[in-house]
Design a binder for these strands. Structure first.
Length: 493
RNA sequence: GGCGCGGUACCCAAGUGGUAAGGGAGAGGUCUGCAAAACCUUUAUGCGGGAGUUCGAUUCUCCCCCGCGCCUCCA
C-alpha cells in the first residue's frame, strides 16, 4: 500500500510521492516566539513530527524547514514591555521552544530558520512582486494586490459572495491604507518606537506571510512537496503565501497542504487569547510526563479535533505504561527455545497492520490499536507459557518500528527534566497533584539497584517486613518495583 | 451567510453497505509472601434525531438538532 494523505488543496485523500526522487521537501509553519508554546501548538508539531518520522520510516529522505516568527506585533510589543531588545527577547523563547521540542521527542528539523535572518530574501521577493505588478505602495507600506491573482482562494475555498468581511469581528487596523480590503501587507512601514529594517522598500518590517514564502523557496525551491500547519493557518496565512509565491515565480508553490485540527479545551480551541492554555511546563509542574503529553497528542489522528482533559492525559500516561511494561517483559523474561508456529506470523501481521494504518492518512489511533493487539497477544502467550525465544526478536522489532514513529517507548523523561532543571522535587506523599507520574529528585540507578539487592536478600530470608519497608521507601522516591520470575524490575513512576 | 471539523459505551477514541477496533476506568476471578505487572470474564441489539435507498445502514441520500474552527492576531 502507498501512503495516502488528505490534501487541503484538493479536498481529497491523495497518494503521496515526492516530486524529486526519494527526497521529500517539507515546510512547516513554526511558532511565533513571543511567549511559551502551549500544547495546542504542540499538537501540530507532534503531527508534523509523526509525518516526517513515517516518511523516513518508509525510506524517504526528508528535508524539513521550520520557521520561527521572531518579528511581529506581539514580539515587538512584549519585548518593549520587557525592556529588552527584540532579538534577545525572542532568543529566550526560541531556547524554550527547543527544550520543549526535545522533551516531546520532536526530531530536529534540517533547517530551523528565523524570519529576521532573512529580511533580504523577503525584500527581494517583494521587489519581484512589485516589478511584476502584484504589489503597490501606500503610505510607506507595500501591499499585495489580490485582484491581480485570479487563483486567490483556491486553498481556503473562500468566495467573495459568502464571505463576511469582519465575520470574525477581527479588524485590520491598516485597512484604510489598502486599495482593496482583501489586499494584505508585504512590508509594513516603520512605526515610531518599533523595530525596523532599512531597505530599498523604505524603512519597515516584513508582513506576516512573506517570511514563509521567502524561506521555503530559499531552502526547498518550488514547487516543494508538503506544506503544513494548524487549520487556523489555512486562511489567510497559507492562502496569502500561495498568492504571493505563485505570483512571484509563476510556478506552483507547494503540492500537498496538510493541516492539523485544533486541540479543544472545554469545548473551545486552546489559544492564548482565550487564556485557556497549558504550556508543557504547566503540565510537568502538575506531575505529568512529557512523553505522556506526546502520546496524547499523537494518539488522535490529525484531522480530528482533540479534546484535552487531565483525565485524558492520565489515561495516556497509563496506556504508554502498558506498552513500556510489555517491552520490558519481552526483553527480560526467559522463554523456551524454538518457535511457536501459531505465533510465528503474529509479528509480521502486526507490522503490516501498523503500516497500513499509517499509510491511511497517518491514522495513529489505528496504528496504536495494531500495537496493543500485539501486546495483548504477546502477554497472553507468555502467560500461557507458549511464547518462544524464536519470536522475541521479531516482536521487539515491531515495537521498535512503531517507536521509530511514535518515539515514546524509551523513558528519558527524568533525565531530560533534570538536565533542563525542570524536575519537581519529591513530594511528601510521593504522588502528583492529579495522581499522575510525579517527577522526583532522582536516586541514581546505582542507588536504586543497591536498594533492590538489599530488599531481595531480605525476601530470601523471608523478612517481608524489611522487604516491604524498602519497597515503600523506593515508592516514595518515585520508583516502582515488580517482582518477576526473571528477577525484580523497576521503573520510575 | 460561506467554507471546514465533529457528535460512537463511564472517559478517550477507531471503523465498515453485512451486523460495533483499541486504550483508560469499574466489577469479579487467576497468579503473587503481599504488592505490582500480566492474564481470563464482564461493561453499546447500539453508533445525535427523523425520513429515504437497500435483502441489509452506524456506514449512502435528504432534512433537522447540537458542539467547535476559519472568514485578515492565531498551531
Amino acid at each position: 500500500m502507498a501512503l495516502r494523505l488528505y490534501n487541503t488543496l484538493s479536498g481529497q485523500v491523495e497518494e503521496f510521492a515526492p516530486l524529486e526522487g526519494n527526497r521529500v521537501r517539507i515546510y512547516t509553519c513554526g511558532p511565533t516566539v513571543y511567549d511559551y508554546g502551549h500544547i495546542g501548538n504542540y499538537r501540530t508539531f507532534v503531527f508534523q513530527d509523526v509525518l516526517r518520522r513515517y516518511l523516513r520510516y518508509r525510506g524517504y529522505e526528508v528535508v524539513q524547514v521550520m520557521n520561527v516568527t521572531d518579528v511581529d506585533d506581539k514580539t515587538i510589543r512584549n519585548a518593549k514591555a520587557a525592556g529588552m531588545p527584540l532579538r534577545a527577547y525572542t532568543d529566550q523563547f526560541i531556547q524554550a521552544f527547543k527544550i520543549d521540542r526535545e522533551l516531546l521527542n520532536l526530531e530536529p528539523v534540517e533547517h530551523f530558520v528565523r524570519a529576521t535572518d532573512h529580511i533580504d530574501d523577503m525584500v527581494q521577493m517583494i521587489q519581484t512582486l512589485e516589478a511584476k505588478g502584484f504589489a503597490y505602495r501606500s503610505e510607506g507600506s507595500v501591499y499585495f494586490r489580490v485582484r491581480a491573482f485570479p487563483d486567490y482562494g483556491k486553498l481556503s475555498k473562500i468566495n467573495l459572495a459568502g464571505n463576511r468581511p469582519g465575520g470574525s469581528e477581527r479588524v485590520d487596523a491598516d485597512e484604510y491604507e489598502k486599495a482593496d480590503a482583501r489586499d494584505f501587507v508585504l512590508w509594513k512601514a516603520a512605526r515610531e518606537g518599533e523595530d525596523f529594517w532599512e531597505s530599498p522598500l523604505g524603512p519597515g518590517r516584513p508582513g506576516w506571510h512573506i517570511e514563509c514564502s521567502a524561506m521555503s523557496m530559499k531552502y526547498l525551491g518550488v514547487p516543494f512537496d508538503v506544506h503544513s500547519g494548524g487549520t487556523d493557518l489555512i486562511f489567510p496565512h497559507h492562502e496569502n503565501e500561495i498568492a504571493q509565491s505563485e505570483a512571484a515565480t509563476g510556478k506552483p508553490f507547494a503540492r500537498f497542504w496538510l493541516h492539523a485540527e485544533h486541540l479543544i479545551v472545554n469545548g473551545q480551541k486552546m489559544s492564548k487569547s482565550l487564556g485557556n492554555f497549558y504550556t508543557l511546563r504547566d503540565l510537568i509542574g502538575r506531575g505529568y510526563r512529557p512523553t505522556a503529553v506526546r502520546y496524547l497528542l499523537a494518539s488522535v489522528p490529525h484531522r480530528k479535533p482533540l479534546n484535552f482533559t487531565f483525565e485524558g492525559l492520565l489515561q495516556a500516561q497509563r496506556s504508554l505504561e502498558r506498552l513500556r511494561n510489555f517491552r520490558s517483559r519481552l526483553t527480560m523474561e526467559i522463554f523456551p527455545a524454538g518457535h511457536n508456529p501459531v505465533f510465528e506470523t503474529r509479528a509480521s501481521q502486526a507490522r503490516q497492520a501498523l503500516e497500513d494504518a499509517l499509510d491511511d492518512n497517518l491514522n495513529t489511533a489505528e496504528a496504536l490499536a495494531a500495537l496493543f493487539d500485539l501486546v495483548h497477544d504477546g502477554n497472553a502467550a507468555m502467560d500461557r507459557g507458549e511464547f518462544r525465544e524464536g519470536e522475541r526478536a521479531e516482536v521487539l522489532d515491531v515495537l521498535e518500528r512503531w517507536d521509530r514513529i511514535f518515539a515514546m517507548l524509551d523513558d528519558a523523561d527524568h533525565a531530560k527534566l533534570l538536565r533542563f532543571g525542570l524536575a519537581a522535587p519529591a513530594g511528601p506523599q510521593g504522588a502528583g497533584e492529579d495522581g499522575g507520574g510525579v517527577l522526583v529528585a532522582a536516586l541514581s540507578d546505582e542507588e536504586i539497584e543497591q536498594r533492590i539487592a538489599a530488599r531481595n536478600s531480605a525476601r530470601a530470608r523471608r523478612d517481608f517486613a524489611r522487604a516491604d519497608q524498602i519497597r515503600e521507601e523506593l515508592a516514595r522516591a518515585g520508583v516502582i518495583l515488580e517482582d518477576t520470575k526473571a528477577g525484580t524490575r523497576w521503573k520510575r513512576k
